[in-house]
Design a protein around this nucleic acid. Structure first.
Lengths: 277, 277
DNA sequence: CGCCATGTTGACTGACGTCAAGGAAAGTGG
DNA sequence: CCACTTTCCTTGACGTCAGTCAACATGGCG
């Protein structure tokens, strides 16, 4: 276990998808041979699951070529969303959950007074849209922070399959459970940690989540604005900016606008009160 | 809809239980006549479901006498817990979720440094224990704030039944979804509201939840300490105390130690930024 | 009755918010 | 490609809300 406290990674989400994908194709009788494909960039909206770079995260549990081939027929992929496009909006009817394929999203809700509250950030491999399950309507909006694409999983189909496959149901319960424990860790962060600890925890979270996706844990780009970060962490833009500058002065980070390089990851984790084992 | 923002009530949890209870008994072939029973106090640990005061919350959807009668065989009820007893502890194996029958609980986690963080309060009719689903181990402890009793629902049985009953599965997904949206509303509260707004929101939350249970929305007892409240809301004991005194000076509350009387519920909701419709 | 946990209130402090100014980056139109 | 505007980011000065420390009150429990 890498992270004991602080923001939690969404590692297990993909385990869920093996099951979905496998299940959605298990009734197929066709058995055609497919040859190995060179892995293409997953940002390509037309790339098949079999050729997707994320497939080793997404499909490690026995899923045969035929099943993968069928996959593309079932998971719905639209054209990519541009920066600023909404995946869904608050009070839209809930119809599906989405796996982020490429790019990143933020979810947010707007209060009666018109004040925005950022609820979360979602990176490739993570599931967005669970907020609509309870009431059948989304209670937050999801917006692309950059050019992005998703795999759409219609929720009624998912429920049908879960009836057929106990292990899929079990897995989706766990995914939702994970969202609950993640939120509760976030509650702890907000209710007892300083501005510096919050910013550090968020950076460690991005680092960990990048690492899981086989990307650099120490060098990445923040796709969201300082305002979004502050809003999410319950602090002001100015405090975010000052905190990041402070971390840079301590030689923990090198920052160039949205480009972040973590020089001292151990030190950062110490500040974030995250323990690596 | 009564509450648009702020802490959310757990109203729908009971709707779930009709289904569980109905399902758990639907295979029964016995059909014995039972006579109507006078509703007894639900704090009585040996009282049957048919005689439980909460039954009109718990079982409004067609559940016949026979089914109710069978119910007692399946839902596990232990002896009541005393104040300070643990329902489960952090890192216990997860085996069941619990419906609070009487009394109240708090859940909390302890950080590496030994600092306690209160994660929630649970009143009769609410479900506690969902935090263990994702990892099969509880990541928080649940402790009785007063003499209390619960109905224990073994989770593996619940999963089995959910396979048989699509509507049960659907409902449990919704319950978990509700927990997620509740936590996200709490995140908003912690990240953008003042101490006064937080305390007001918590009091409104208790008021609403009491009202659902057909108890007074304006006069109740806080079973948790000021320290617990402060910890939960991310403020200190002193601030909680000062805030409550301030609300009393404004003639919004009359407070006598743990006994709270809300004089101006509309005013309190205004402070809490909760809109009643 | 006395002890210890819990709650209240006051004085002081400090972390973070607010206000303000200036600069860098990104989008826009010619 | 370059002006132009707009948005975003950074930094400084100052104010304030809530934390800290301390003293005392209250109440539950042995």
């Amino acid at each position: 276990m890498v992270v004991s406290k602080g923001l939690q990674s969404c590692h297990s989400t993909w385990c869920f998808f093996h099951l979905v994908f496998k299940a959605m194709n298990s009734d197929s009788e066709k058995s055609q041979l497919i040859k190995p494909v060179e892995k293409k960039c997953h940002t390509n909206p037309v790339v098949s699951c079999s050729a997707c770079r994320l497939s080793d995260l997404c499909l490690p549990i026995a899923l045969n070529g035929d099943e993968i081939n069928q996959l593309d027929q079932i998971v719905q992929r639209g054209r990519p969303l541009e920066k600023g496009d909404h995946l869904y909006r608050e009070s839209d009817k809930f119809t599906a959950v989405y796996a982020v394929r490429s790019g990143s999203f933020k979810t947010y809700a707007v209060s009666d007074e018109g004040v925005e509250q950022v609820a979360g950030f979602y990176l490739p491999g993570e599931i967005v849209g669970l907020d609509g399950i309870s009431s059948q309507f989304h209670c937050s909006s999801a917006i692309a922070l950059e050019r992005a694409s998703v795999c759409e999983i219609p929720f009624d189909r998912l429920e049908d399959l879960s009836i057929q496959l106990p292990s899929l149901q079990h897995h989706f319960f766990r995914i939702m459970g994970k969202e609950i424990t993640k939120d509760q860790q976030m509650l702890t962060l907000l209710s007892s940690n300083s501005a510096e600890e919050r910013v550090a925890a968020l950076l460690v979270s991005f680092s960990t989540r990048n690492h899981i996706r086989h990307m650099s844990a120490t060098h990445f780009r923040l796709t969201m604005s300082r305002a979004d970060i502050g809003n999410y962490l319950g602090i002001t833009v100015e405090t975010v900016s000052r905190t990041i500058s402070k971390l840079q002065n301590q030689s923990i980070l090198v920052v160039n606008n949205k480009d972040i390089e973590i020089i001292d990851l151990v030190g950062l984790k110490k500040i974030a009160k995250v323990r690596s084992v």
